[in-house]
């Protein structure tokens, strides 16, 4: 019989090999899945892993899709490392988008150049404010942040619905629940002309670098993690768990809010009732898949973006139902998680 045995030190080799093994496993399972559905397995896998990356346009679309996933995942990873179970990045993203949209609606052609930076800052402030509610209730009332952040996500969605149906509805929009389109000066400039990719991707990677340095190098980043994992030890050393709660939630809120701002002031250009495709929730998977490490999050966000887009393509190219995409995505994620086990463990014959 085989049994799992902890490795004395995590395997560096497996750290790199795990994603490859997972992809291979997905290829095997995926081939079986496509074959049982009467589709050519090679065609099926090509659509998921190659077609989205074949053209410049395709690459920019993958990049665009990565931005909100990466930003939210960076914030969430920080929370989870400090033992703060924020699962409400979606709400923080939505409220960030709302506040950013509010500021963007005030713009006119006469506004200062670079107005979009103001929009992005507003988005960060909005996300922070929403996350601050969770932090405050956790800090002052000891209210569990899983529940509060989740419930606040629903509330944020309804708030958006209220605004676009009421006060912020475009008066010329025939009563449809959409805001006016933003003035060009409020929009994030394009990175690749002729595509939809904005400077958002550069901003997301800047955020990545900042967070990476913060986690790996700064004293505050270290304190944050100590406070999260060993509150008692932290207290002796003079830092508090309170600090950890506030800091991680506010940073996550800011990043998620930024993601929301980049969506509304990026490819959309107006507030719509459903501007997020559930990025805040998908980012929870991204964060764990990236092993709560900023670099890992990039890889994970890329994989998630790819399988979302591959899912659409498999419908239009191969006529597969969207449901199969979910099955395939679930399989890929489960194989990745399984493969990760072998970084810390190995199989031994007993």
């Amino acid at each position: 019989m085989l049994r799992l045995e902890a490795r004395p030190i995590p395997s560096t080799l497996m750290g790199y090999a795990a994603p490859v093994i997972a992809l291979l496993a997905t290829v095997v399972f995926g081939s079986i899945l496509f074959a049982t559905l009467g589709k050519n397995p090679v065609a099926g896998l090509t659509v998921f892993f190659i077609t989205p990356l074949e053209t410049v346009r395709g690459l920019t679309e993958v990049g665009l899709k990565m931005v909100p996933l990466l930003l939210c995942a960076l914030g969430l990873a920080l929370c989870y490392r400090s033992n703060v179970w924020n699962i409400g990045a979606e709400g923080q993203l939505v409220v960030g988008g709302i506040v950013a949209g509010g500021v963007a609606l005030l713009a006119s052609p006469a506004s200062i150049p670079g107005y979009f930076l103001l929009v992005l800052l507003a988005g960060m402030a909005g996300g922070m404010a929403w996350a601050a509610i969770t932090a405050w209730l956790r800090d002052s009332f000891n209210a569990n942040e899983i529940l509060v952040s989740l419930m606040l996500s629903y509330v944020g969605g309804l708030l958006l619905l209220y605004l676009v149906n009421g006060p912020w509805k475009d008066p010329k929009g025939f009563n449809f629940p959409y805001s006016k389109t933003f003035d060009a000066v409020a929009m994030v400039p394009k990175l690749v002309p002729g595509t939809r990719l904005t400077w958002g991707i550069v901003i997301a990677f800047l955020a990545l670098v900042v967070i990476w340095i913060f986690v790996a190098r700064s004293k505050a980043g270290f304190r944050l993690q100590v406070a999260g994992h060993a509150p008692l030890a932290a207290r002796f050393a003079g830092f508090s768990a309170r600090e950890g709660i506030w800091m991680s939630l506010l940073i996550c809120g800011a990043l998620a809010g930024l993601a929301g701002a980049l969506e509304v002031a990026g490819p959309l250009g107006q507030l719509t009732p459903q501007f997020s495709s559930g990025y805040g929730f998908a980012a929870i998977i991204v964060a764990w898949l990236g092993r709560l490490h900023p670099g890992g999050c990039v890889f994970a966000a890329f994989v998630m973006a790819l399988i979302y887009i591959g899912g659409e393509l498999s419908q239009s190219r191969l006529g597969l139902p969207a449901a199969i995409t979910g099955v395939f995505q679930g399989m890929l994620l489960l194989s990745l998680l399984t493969a990760d086990t072998f970084i810390h463990y190995r199989l031994r014959r007993v």
Partner: peptide, 17 residues
């Protein structure tokens, strides 16, 4: 052919293009 579950977010433009 069709694509289902296309959200009314930034995803729609990609699918239609």
């Amino acid at each position: 052919s069709y694509v289902e579950n296309v959200p009314e977010s930034a995803d729609a433009e990609r699918v239609i293009r």
